[in-house]
Nucleic acid binder design. Sequence first.
DNA 1: AAAGCCAGTGCCCAATCTCGG
DNA 2: GCCGAGATTGGGCACTGGCTT
Lengths: 345, 345
Amino acid sequence: MSDHDDRARAATIFDVARLAGVSHQTVSRVLNDLPNVRPATRARVEQAIKQLRYVPSPAARALVTRRTRTLGLIVTGAPDYGPSSTALHFNEAARDARYAVITASMLETDAASMRSTAELLVRQNVEAIVLIAAQRAALDALDGIELGVPVVAVASEERGALHRVWLDQYAGARLAVEHLIGLGHREIRHVSGPTNAMDAAERVRGWAAALGEHGLAAREPLVGDWSPGSGYVHGRALAADRDMTAIFVSNDQMALGVMHALAEAGLSVPGDVSIVGFDDIPEAAFFAPPLTTVRQDFDALGRDAMAGVLAVLGDDDRMPVPRVPDLVVRTSTAAPSRDRAAVTG
Amino acid sequence: MSDHDDRARAATIFDVARLAGVSHQTVSRVLNDLPNVRPATRARVEQAIKQLRYVPSPAARALVTRRTRTLGLIVTGAPDYGPSSTALHFNEAARDARYAVITASMLETDAASMRSTAELLVRQNVEAIVLIAAQRAALDALDGIELGVPVVAVASEERGALHRVWLDQYAGARLAVEHLIGLGHREIRHVSGPTNAMDAAERVRGWAAALGEHGLAAREPLVGDWSPGSGYVHGRALAADRDMTAIFVSNDQMALGVMHALAEAGLSVPGDVSIVGFDDIPEAAFFAPPLTTVRQDFDALGRDAMAGVLAVLGDDDRMPVPRVPDLVVRTSTAAPSRDRAAVTG
DNA sequence: AAAGCCAGTGCCCAATCTCGG
DNA sequence: GCCGAGATTGGGCACTGGCTT
């Protein structure tokens, strides 16, 4: 009648026991790799398990062990490349560690939604919550509230009660800027991400620090919103700045917009202006010209998030150490041209 | 000692019963909104529940009801905008319907991984599986195998045993092409998505059909891989085609690459060539020029996936009807220019 | 050493019991 | 003493862990 009818009632541990001619907790022993089972008996049980296609019930197991082997994942904001990749790889890592992941995606990051979502996960008896949130507000919302389970945040800023894994944005930004300085650039502008983004703030910090150490001035950054559109807008403004010879853009998408605007203004990259992006999205290698950028290893970050969970849960390892991104040099950067340098000097 | 110690043992139904001075069964009645509970008693119980911050154990409940209120979600491939958005909105819709979602993201779509992942979810006792897969192979992998739970696929092609929700790609493509034809274009080329993508095939079909109905020839499509890079490559080739006055590109990212190539070749959009994309990604409005494209409502698609699940589970509704995308006219399309038209004519 | 027994996990459901009218 | 709304008891559900044999 309904679709459910063909769902045969699954075999239980008793069915297996009967078929193997043993008691049910001998089966349990085999299931849990406990000692004191004769190899022959074990074999019989395993045979019965296979024959019956028996699978232990997670619900029953969770009930008695008080462990669900389930993790909660909260991902906030629109599905951008970075967070999505991190979530994907975290998800795979969790699966490898034999944990199920209950995901809660949410567009908003207001404290009330964040909190109620986290509590929803706790009600599902997740053993830990992983939070992937670019926005500072999302992090703050979960800080300080008593959930009863540990929270591992993938975030660029520290918060008291939360465990944390992250990629070193500050170091990545320095890499980018030092590359430009090494090429001879002196006037290096910055198009940053939005002010509520923690990564953006760290990159601003790295940019300013690198400049400062070389005695170079840091002019006010132009604040974008990660979109190519905002890059384009700032690119137009920057095209009018005849002093600047290089731009460090806080992500690749905005870098695309900046390059567009520059091209429209008749400026060539890297002939007139050098550009460095951030992230190394798959498209970056196909930009015109291919973009020099800072590669973030979201794959590793996702795995680190899982490693962090295992560390906190005490099953394994220690908390992972933040990774430093790599600089990927392509052809959007070069030494500053003589004429613009002349104007500058 | 460890992080677990502060996790106070949760209150049980018996604690509530004791505090309220009733039996646990009366509490259960209150919990499940069953009749035969005196209002005063009900109030006492509810008070006790609140006071103890009692939450019923999902594991115990699942054990006895054989319902987990949990859904499995499989998302294959890289985290592109479309699938990611659909997954996000499905996730929200599921939450609204009080279902938890266990997600399995996977890069590969080979039959073995697909199958074992699906079985992993079944072992978690999910009540249904939702599959968001652009690749035909992912769909095929789950078709025909007996999982014991219904599968709702978000896919553009039909498969025997699978339920399905989708956006009408064929109709969307026709919209795009008819818009171009309406503007006066006669030679309309197509840059398609990869051949393993079901959406891509449907769009090719729609493009060819619209052309055919107007007695126009459909030249061989150029097959891309969804990336701007591949759009760029094909854009260079198309720039040499002096007959063509318009290009229907199978997604916005490739459209970006095509426009780049055209611009490099000295062709203006829409002056020399009109371009229509597909998807309406957030960036599309910021392209230069802003892209005319076919808007896909991934938000609604995600909700439809959940509606499909409810329909199949018999809790609600009927299977949702496929939605037809909208054409969003911006400034990358215009009537063909006289000189190119002259050459063509 | 190998395997069985019993109790307990938190909850739902059917059957049963308890009163006031 | 009969009725039934209102509340209780007992029997699973599928599994694990400590104690026994």
